[in-house]
Design a protein around this nucleic acid. Structure first.
Length: 141
DNA sequence: CAGTTGACCCCCG
DNA sequence: GCGGGGGCCAACT
């Protein structure tokens, strides 16, 4: 649990943003951080998910927040302390129809070109011309 | 109470 | 494309 109200607000912002990820899609910690207006703290996003309550009575819990849809920027399920955790995340994604492949080193990878979720980008980024899609020609969807 | 850790990311050679 | 380094900050030792 967060020790301050400010931290709690951040936690809630993260959980709310994660809930916006549609089933069958994945996004990155950094993307979530950007969405809630704190692009400098992708790490804290991971902290929030790590401390996601299992208590069904909680406002946000591991059943109502699709934590499994958040992976790292490289399209790989971030390894954590317990290997069973990342493996469990992979299983949860597979259950949603997301194909998870295992790399040569045992990394659990997701094809971002197919399962990546990038519809919500900050207006400032669009102004910078950093749009994720190109109208001229594209090869995915 | 000072120092580490970590479900991360981006910049620079 | 790979390795090093900096930044971020709650939780933990």
């Amino acid at each position: 649990m967060p020790r301050s109200d400010e931290a709690s607000a951040f936690f809630y912002a993260v959980y709310s943003a994660v809930q916006e990820i549609p089933p069958g899609k994945v996004t990155s910690y950094g993307h979530i951080a950007k969405l809630i207006g704190t692009p400098q703290r992708p790490r804290q996003v991971g902290v929030c998910l790590k401390h996601l309550p299992s208590d069904p009575e909680a406002r946000f819990n591991n059943a109502t927040v699709p934590w499994q849809r958040v992976i790292n920027s490289r399209g790989i399920i971030s390894p954590r302390s317990q290997p069973s955790g990342s493996r469990n995340q992979a299983a949860a994604l597979e259950a949603e129809g997301v194909t998870v492949t295992t790399g040569p080193l045992g990394e659990l990878m997701v094809n971002l070109a197919e399962f990546g979720w990038f519809p919500r980008i900050l207006p400032s980024e669009e102004a910078e011309g950093l749009e994720p899609e190109d109208s001229s020609d594209d090869d995915e969807d």
